[in-house]
Computed example of a mutant assay.
Amino acid sequence: MNSDTGDGPPRAVLVAAIVLAVGAVVAVLVVAAVLQRTPGPTPVAVSAVPAPRADSTECATLVAALPDRLGDFRRAPLVDPAPAGAAAWQPEGGGEPLILRCGVQRPADFVVGAPLQVVDAVSWFRVQDSAGGDRATWFAVDRPVYVALTLPSGSGPDAIQTISTTLAAKLPATAPDPAPLG
């Protein structure tokens, strides 16, 4: 008696179906294992700086509208206690985070005649890191609150462009108010 002439499907079809089902289960398990090993962003410690307007409505509006990604950086949780008006993003491969602080004080070097750079309708004032590295903090100086964005070396233009777009959409432009000379 030939087993291929029975009431069920041919043996070759059954074997192929079983192999396909086992392969699909293995594929799902491999994908799940890879996704489970992908670490989430590590919480970032943000030091407190004088930020008298960090609890303002403007800062709450801005922080709520901040994107999850800034170029190769993705939003990271903050270590508690986190200062009000702060946010951070970490680079995909690890490294120094990008930090935003809203409601900070006017930078001391922002005086009449200080050079500004306009990015997507937002005026920025740059303060170089005092440690002499390539890291810099950019201050948005033409909004109702000062916003500081600290960029690590090599972070590229994506972050400041994206933040500028968000600032322009969420906070109205105001005239910059530099300190008088002398």
Rank of each mutant, 00 (worst) to 15 (best):
M1W: 09
M1S: 13
D4L: 13
D4Y: 08
D4N: 14
T5Y: 09
P9F: 11
P10E: 09
V13A: 13
L14P: 07
L14F: 11
V15I: 15
A16F: 02
A16S: 14
A21R: 06
G23E: 03
V26E: 00
A27H: 00
L29D: 05
V34D: 03
Q36C: 00
V44S: 09
V44N: 02
S47K: 08
R53E: 15
T57L: 11
A60G: 13
T61I: 02
L62K: 03
L62T: 07
A64D: 14
A64K: 09
A65S: 10
L66A: 07
L66W: 03
L66D: 10
P67W: 00
D68R: 10
R69G: 02
R69V: 06
R69M: 04
L70S: 03
G71E: 09
D72C: 05
R74M: 08
R75E: 12
A76F: 05
A76L: 04
P77D: 13
P77H: 03
V79M: 09
D80I: 01
A82Q: 03
P83D: 07
G85Y: 09
G85P: 07
A86I: 05
A86Q: 02
A87K: 02
A87D: 05
E92K: 11
G93S: 10
G94H: 05
G94T: 06
E96Q: 15
E96S: 15
P97T: 05
L98A: 10
R101E: 02
C102A: 05
C102R: 06
Q105T: 12
R106M: 06
D109W: 01
D109R: 13
V112L: 14
V112H: 10
A114P: 12
L116R: 15
Q117I: 11
V118E: 15
V119I: 13
V119R: 08
V119E: 08
V119C: 02
D120A: 13
S123I: 01
W124P: 00
W124N: 02
F125V: 02
V127G: 00
S130W: 10
S130T: 12
S130H: 09
A131M: 10
A136Y: 01
T137H: 05
T137P: 02
F139P: 02
D142R: 10
R143T: 05
V145E: 06
V145P: 08
Y146R: 04
Y146Q: 05
Y146D: 06
V147H: 07
A148W: 00
G156A: 06
G156V: 06
I160D: 05
S164G: 01
T165K: 13
T165D: 06
L167I: 03
L167R: 04
A169N: 11
K170Y: 06
P172K: 13
P172L: 05
P172Q: 10
T174K: 06
D177W: 00
P180G: 11
P180S: 13
L181W: 04
L181V: 10
